[in-house]
């Protein structure tokens, strides 16, 4: 079981949440100026990192708000939870 600490509601079982995948993928500023390659990169290409990974979650069966998480995709350890729009906190050892 994965415990996730919603910034608003506190620690809850992962099943209250829905997953939003990789975080910090920003929508291109000038969509009509993009090449096909740039679109493909924005839409499909993924870090899919093994180890520390920045990702989005939404507390779907709770406050229904989105937030960011830094989670290790091998150990599942969560080392940071921060709000949408915020930058990931500095890593501490």
């Amino acid at each position: 079981m994965l415990l996730i600490k919603c910034p608003w509601c506190g620690e809850r079982d992962a099943h209250e949440f829905s997953y939003g995948g990789e975080a910090h993928i920003t929508r291109p500023e000038n969509p009509d100026k993009l090449s096909d390659e740039q679109w493909a990169d924005y839409l499909f290409m993924q870090k899919n990192a093994m180890g520390p990974f920045l990702e989005r979650w939404v507390h779907a069966h709770g406050c229904r708000r989105w937030f960011n998480v830094r989670r290790d995709t091998v150990t599942h350890e969560i080392t940071a939870v921060y709000k949408m729009g915020d930058r990931p906190p500095e890593r501490t050892a």
Partner: peptide
């Protein structure tokens, strides 16, 4: 599982 992982095990749920 609903979230990305390389842990080679899944959730009990």
């Amino acid at each position: 599982d609903a979230f990305q992982s390389y842990a080679q095990r899944g959730s009990f749920a």
